[in-house]
Simulated scan of single mutants.
Amino acid sequence: MFFGKRDPSERPLLDLMGDIGSIGMQLVVSTFVGLGMGYYLDKWLGTKPWMLIIFLILGIAAGFKNVYEQAMRMMKANEAPHEHKDNE
């Protein structure tokens, strides 16, 4: 059942689920990277809490930028098959 050939109609659903999962991960990871960088810079420079706040905001902004870019790629990929059918 799980190891046999998959129905080709299942592929778009699996691709969509993978894209949605990667979007969520990108947002979470970039936020935590910004948080971690800010935390350790504050400890190193003694600027508590300013670097933490700045890098947290930068991490969140980077996460939203990644989400936006991934959404645009998904929209373009979704439009491409429809445009091909219209040209036939």
Rank of each mutant, 00 (worst) to 15 (best):
N78I: 07
G24M: 05
M17I: 09
L52S: 03
G4Y: 09
E83S: 10
Q26G: 13
G4K: 06
V28N: 11
A77G: 12
L14M: 15
N87E: 10
V67A: 15
L13C: 06
N78S: 15
K76S: 11
E88I: 07
G46H: 04
F64M: 10
H82W: 15
L58A: 06
N78Q: 07
K48V: 05
K76H: 14
P12H: 05
A61W: 02
G4F: 12
E69K: 05
E83C: 10
D86G: 02
A61F: 06
E83P: 11
M1R: 08
P8M: 08
P81A: 06
M74V: 09
Q26Y: 11
Q70E: 11
E10S: 06
W44I: 13
A62F: 04
F55T: 01
P81E: 06
E69G: 04
L27A: 10
I54P: 02
I53V: 05
F3K: 06
S9T: 08
P12W: 02
I23V: 13
G59V: 01
Y40M: 04
E10I: 02
F3E: 08
R6A: 12
M74I: 06
G4H: 05
D7E: 03
F2I: 14
N87M: 13
G34K: 00
N78R: 13
M75P: 08
K85T: 13
D15G: 06
A77M: 10
N78H: 14
F64P: 08
L52H: 00
A62E: 13
I53E: 00
N87I: 13
V29D: 04
G46L: 08
G63M: 05
